[in-house]
């Protein structure tokens, strides 16, 4: 299995997947290096105000005379790492809770699943808003708010996979051999959960970026003068005729969300059990 991961079969390479991967990698690269090469200080307010895109300022300037290109590029460094962190956190916590619920069952399952139901019963953005408002507006609190609403889907998915695996014969065989619960989870269950969870996570990066920028847009996330995409769009509302202020951050969000969705979709094709079945079926 490990060997096959290194050598990607040609059938798995889809045009959209490749485009998505290239864009996603480019954005992540920008996110971590932008501060080193952007032409202007993203916070400096020393350029002419509301200047249309041109040779000096590629994407124009905003109402405070800041270079939008520089703010956009450094803004990637704000949103994307936080979104990735958010996904990793939700994944770890959600998977652990889901695995425990699915494996131990009974009242443990009941308790944990009612908890996830509780969270899932609220519309995501509304609940995140409530949490962010309660904790006070800051980017860090926005991440916590987003975390509160995003772990349950991992818990749900992991639980359903574990429930299916728990009665698999090889899991039973391991337990007859005296595996401890922890060993069963580690050896027989975890490796078979990884694939689907990775797919979910890669699809979720886009959602996380949307959620974080959404909260910032509403003023519950990044605070001025942090160059965050959502708050940049929010600022554009006050200068509606200067189209460039809102357009470019909007395009940034669009491209990065789509890129991660494309990657997630092609990962889904790779891990799809039916495609594995057809490959195994062709052999026998």
């Amino acid at each position: 299995m490990r060997k096959r991961w290194l050598k990607i079969p040609a059938a798995w390479i889809t045009p959209l997947g490749v485009i998505g991967a290239v864009i996603a990698v480019a954005w992540v690269g920008i996110a971590f290096t932008a501060r080193l090469w952007v032409p202007f200080d993203p916070l400096a307010q020393d350029l002419p105000r509301l200047q249309a895109p041109g040779i000096d300022t590629l994407m124009g300037t905003d109402a405070l005379g800041r270079d939008i290109f520089s703010r956009l590029m450094t803004g990637a460094g704000v949103t994307i790492p936080l979104a990735l962190m958010l996904v990793v956190m939700s994944l770890l916590v959600g998977t652990l809770i889901g695995a425990i619920a699915g494996y131990f069952g009974k009242w443990v399952d009941e308790l944990l699943m009612r908890l996830t139901d509780l969270v899932m019963a609220f519309p995501t953005v509304i609940l995140a808003m409530v949490v962010a408002a309660a904790l006070g507006p800051s980017l860090f609190n926005a991440v916590i708010a987003a975390f509160v609403v995003s772990w349950p889907q991992y818990a749900r998915m992991t639980r359903s996979i574990v429930l299916g695996l728990r009665t698999q014969n090889y899991v039973m065989a391991g337990r007859l051999m005296g595996f401890s619960p922890f060993k069963t989870l580690r050896v027989d269950i975890a490796p078979n959960v990884v694939g689907p969870i990775l797919v979910l996570a890669s699809l979720d990066v886009g959602t996380a970026i949307l959620l974080l920028s959404g909260l910032s847009f509403l003023g519950l996330g990044a605070q001025p003068p942090t160059p965050e995409w959502g708050s940049m769009i929010s600022a554009a509302i006050q200068n509606f005729d200067s189209w460039w202020i809102g357009l470019f951050p909007g395009l940034a969000i669009l491209t990065v969300v789509m890129a991660f969705n494309f990657v997630g979709d092609s990962l889904r094709d790779i891990f799809d059990p039916t495609s594995q079945v057809s490959r195994a079926g062709a052999r026998s």
């Binding site: 039973m172 007859l176 051999m177 005296g178 619960p181």
Partner: peptide, 26 residues
């Protein structure tokens, strides 16, 4: 859920469906 005691690991079972009898990733 608990770990099976060693005295009972001398009871072993072979299942009907060979496809689900082995862990696919090991």
């Amino acid at each position: 859920v608990r770990r099976r005691k060693a005295q009972f690991t001398s009871i072993q079972m072979v299942f009907q469906d060979p496809n689900s009898s082995l862990n696919p990733r090991i």
